[in-house]
Design a protein around this nucleic acid. Structure first.
Length: 451
DNA sequence: TCTGGGGTCCTAGGACCC
DNA sequence: TCTGGGGTCCTAGGACCC
């Protein structure tokens, strides 16, 4: 499959753009954008192999995810294993039934973060604007580089980036290109694995018409079902439907969104400074927890974990959420928003405890998962300016100092050394972690994998 | 076939204010 | 007389993505 390498023609595209009959009018960016999506091929599989060349590295049929005996699911599978029908999010046990010869390894969390940063660092040398969309996806905005890179086409540039990333990080990536993020994203799925696909300017609709609606990002199982009930399966099927009908069927906003999406309309920018909106940590237990005491113990650990991440990023939070999944998979959550932003483990844990008590009062059954989340995040420095609360507020200065002291100890001796209410030894992890990256999550134990 | 963990965004209802 | 209307914040739940 040859990549499209057609040269973009700015003059032509200006004339052949969107027809003015498009309702509502979609404001166009001032000029043609050149966007690439860099997507690592089976990233978790690649990293697992690089980290363990003798083990995972030798397994053609490789599944990365939870242990088969536990409650794990597949995070990523090698292309060879995918041929057997193995998919991510599938229970590991099911994956092994489909592909009994597969080797299952745990998620190498630390290495994933580290290598993701390596890829990003190289991309930042190659492109003016880089945004990490996830651990294995990066958007590049190359608008304005036409002259700089000439006579290279966007596809040529993509191939060059692919080569450089492979040489410098040993990670194989695929790249999709187009005039909008959503087009670049869809092009990348066509490029996979280890390829490049650029949708030429003006060919967006023709490209979209080759797709199923289910392939559009944002169209998930639920919407697919609703669409199919109306006889709509392909993008082509839906393109003739008036916006009013889509709105009548799927709601005003969803309908309008879908109308725009099947036309590839996407005004979103590649924004390198996009800030985090929430921080959370959750655990599915190896066996369901029955008592409030057991749950509270785990709750404090989770609160401490998200608290450390929060402070590591120099943030404060106003909302604490506790999530509980009962043995029957029913998921419930309670949230509490406080007037002033908080950051200390003590305060987070205290609010979380209240929320857990409420949840348990409503339904006291064995729990399979517990989680703590923080949202309403704000910059710590900015908030200190408008601090109205001295003593007697939600959180005391003493609480904050204590948490910072704990962070300092963790920085030197490793996370997990100090946990409120108990003392444990340093984690027996592979790496003693003399320098811990700022937003590294405190490892529960040295072991990735479930629980 | 027995369902992970990290996120983002949307909806809908109630509280509260003007 | 029962009964407005918009805006914002908060909460619970769900869809969706990787």
């Amino acid at each position: 499959m040859g990549p499209e390498a057609r040269e973009e023609n700015g003059r032509e595209s200006l004339l052949s753009r969107k027809p003015p009959t498009d309702v509502p009018p979609v404001p166009e960016p001032p000029r043609e954008r050149r966007i690439l999506l860099v997507d690592c091929d089976a990233f978790f599989v690649q990293v697992a192999r690089l980290e363990d060349p003798e083990g995972a590295g030798r397994a053609r049929l490789l599944v990365v995810g939870g242990s088969p005996s536990g409650r794990g699911v597949v995070t990523s599978a090698s292309y060879e294993a995918r041929a057997f029908g193995v998919r991510s999010a599938m229970p590991t046990a099911q994956a092994l039934r489909l592909c009994p010869e597969a080797t299952v390894v745990g998620v190498p969390r630390g290495a994933i973060t580290r290598r993701s940063r390596e890829v990003r660092a190289v991309l930042e040398e190659l492109a003016p604007v880089v945004q990490a969309a996830s651990v294995d996806e990066f958007y590049l905005d190359l608008t304005g580089t036409e002259r700089l890179f000439a006579p290279e086409t966007l596809a040529d540039t993509a191939w060059r980036i692919r080569r450089t990333i492979l040489e410098r990080t040993r990670i194989s990536v695929s790249l999709g290109g187009g005039t909008r993020r959503v087009i670049a994203k869809l092009a990348a799925s066509r490029a996979k694995p280890a390829g490049v696909y650029v949708v030429p300017t003006g060919d967006e609709q023709a490209f979209l018409n080759t797709l199923d609606l289910a392939e559009l990002p944002g169209v998930g199982p639920s919407l697919v079902k609703a669409l199919r009930a109306r006889g709509l399966v392909r993008v082509e099927d839906a393109i003739g439907v008036q916006e009013e009908w889509l709105q009548r069927w799927f709601g005003e906003r969803r309908g309008a969104w879908l109308y725009r999406r099947i036309r590839g309309a996407d005004r979103s920018r590649v924004d390198p400074a996009e800030r985090r909106k929430s921080i959370s940590s959750e655990r599915t237990f190896f066996r369901d927890l029955e008592t409030d005491e057991e749950l509270e113990q785990r709750l404090v650990e989770l609160a401490t974990s998200v608290g450390a991440t929060l402070r590591g990023k120099g943030l404060r939070a106003r909302t604490v959420t506790v999530k509980l999944r009962d043995h029957d998979f029913r998921t419930r959550q309670h949230a509490r928003t406080v007037p002033e932003p908080i950051e200390s483990d003590t305060t987070i844990a205290e609010i979380a405890r209240t929320l857990l008590t409420e949840l348990r009062a409503e339904r006291r059954v064995p729990a399979r998962l517990l989680g703590v989340g923080l949202s309403g995040l704000g910059d710590e420095a900015a908030e200190r300016q408008m601090t109205l609360f001295e003593e007697g507020g939600v959180e005391s200065e003493r609480d904050r100092e204590l948490s910072r002291a704990v962070d300092a100890i963790a920085e030197r001796f490793g996370h997990g050394t100090v946990v409120p209410g108990r003392i444990v030894g340093p984690s027996p992890g592979r790496r003693p972690a003399p320098e811990v990256p700022r937003d590294r999550k405190p490892g529960r134990s040295g072991e990735p994998g479930p629980d």
